[in-house]
Structures are given as C-alpha cells and as structure tokens.
Amino acid sequence: MIELKNIFKSVKTGGEKIFLLRDIHLKIKEGEFVSIMGPSGSGKSTLLNVIGMLDGFEEGEYLFLQEPIHKFKERQRAELYKKYIGFVFQAYHLIDELTVYENIETPLLYQDYKSTDRKAMVSHMLDRFNMVAKKDLFPSQLSGGQQQLVGIARALIAKPKLLLADEPTGNLNSRQGEEIMELFKKLNYEDGVTIIQVTHSEKNASYGSKIIHLLDGRIDKQL
C-alpha cells in the first residue's frame, strides 16, 4: 500500500541544515497496524505527516497504492488523502463551534455526499461509538476520551483505507487510552483498516503488528 524510498527531509534553522528524515525506506502492506516510536525530535510526526501527504519531502519516492505521490500536484494529493486517509490527533482538533454530530459530518460535506446519505452514515457512526445521546453536545462538554472518540469517528466516517494517528492517547489517562487502543485493534482486525500510529508508550505499540523505531530521522530498527 505504502512504499517510501530514500526519503530525505530537512529544514534550515539559523543557517544550519537539519535533517528531519534521512534515507527512509519503508513498506507498509494493506491491513497492517504499525506503531512508530522514538524519542522526542526523532522525526516520528514528520514521518506521519509525510505519509499523510500533509508535508512534502526533498528527495526520494513515495508510492501510495502504486501511485507516485512525489510526482503529484498539491491538488491531486489533496483529492487522494481526502478519499483514502483519516487523521486522528493528540489534541483531538474538533471544531469548537460544531456539535458532535456536525463534527463527524464535516468530512462528508467536502466529498459531495447527499444529505440523506450523510444522515445515515453519521447515525451509523454514532451508534457504533455509543454516542447517540451526546450527538448535540459541543466538544467542550465532553471528556477527553469522548472527544477523542469523536475525533476517531470523524476520521472513519468517509471509510478511509488508512488511519493515521499522532499520539492518539497522549492527552488521555491510561484507562481511556486503553479503550482507544482496543478500538483501533478492533478496527484493524474487523474492518481491515490499515493503521499507522505514533506513540511513546511500549504498551500502546504492542497493540500493533509492527513497530518502527526512529532515531535522529533514521529508521533505527523495525520489529
């Protein structure tokens, strides 16, 4: 599904060139559950953003579903990730002014679904996450764990093939974190959604089928 070859990415700070990613080679097959680990500043989030096509890179090749992403224009990339990728964030990033229902619905608005379809899809998602009673609440009225559930529901609403999660449990307590991880495992197992998550915790990483360790922008080891 994903194939990264010789990826290099750098930034300039104070006249010095700092490499965020060096020579990344990576293959991820459909249906895998991958965890990316590594100390702060090792390039985990950057790698995730590159995979999610939110960020570019200077050198190398990126094939997504056999398509050469590095040759695509911004617009084409956006169309692609809109269709195939869902994002989950550490800080949830819900829109404060929208209710739970509306937050989950938003991605569909950008993909030209009909109103009746949207309703059905959102209702189904609310059902599945046991949030029907909370659909009219605003994010500020929910606990962190509940907010992250909404974030995941939103990421899944458009039926992505790939779910990218940047420290999804970073702001949660351990019980809430476990629930989220169980959910990821279930999604991966039952629905066949490919998941790539960035995490600090060995325990969370163990839910996945593969662990990638990064150090100073390099892949240190793959397990």
């Binding site: 956006a78 990033h93 829109i95 938003t106 950008y110 939103r154 458009a158």
Partner: peptide
C-alpha cells in the same frame, strides 16, 4: 487557524 487547518486536513479545498 486550528479550524482552518483541520478543515484542510479533512478535505476542504481553498476555494471552499
């Protein structure tokens, strides 16, 4: 800015 970034991530194009 957060809202704008998010909308972009979930598929909003600039004209929208």
């Amino acid at each position: 800015s957060k809202e704008i970034g998010l909308r972009k991530v979930i598929g909003a194009r600039r004209p929208q």
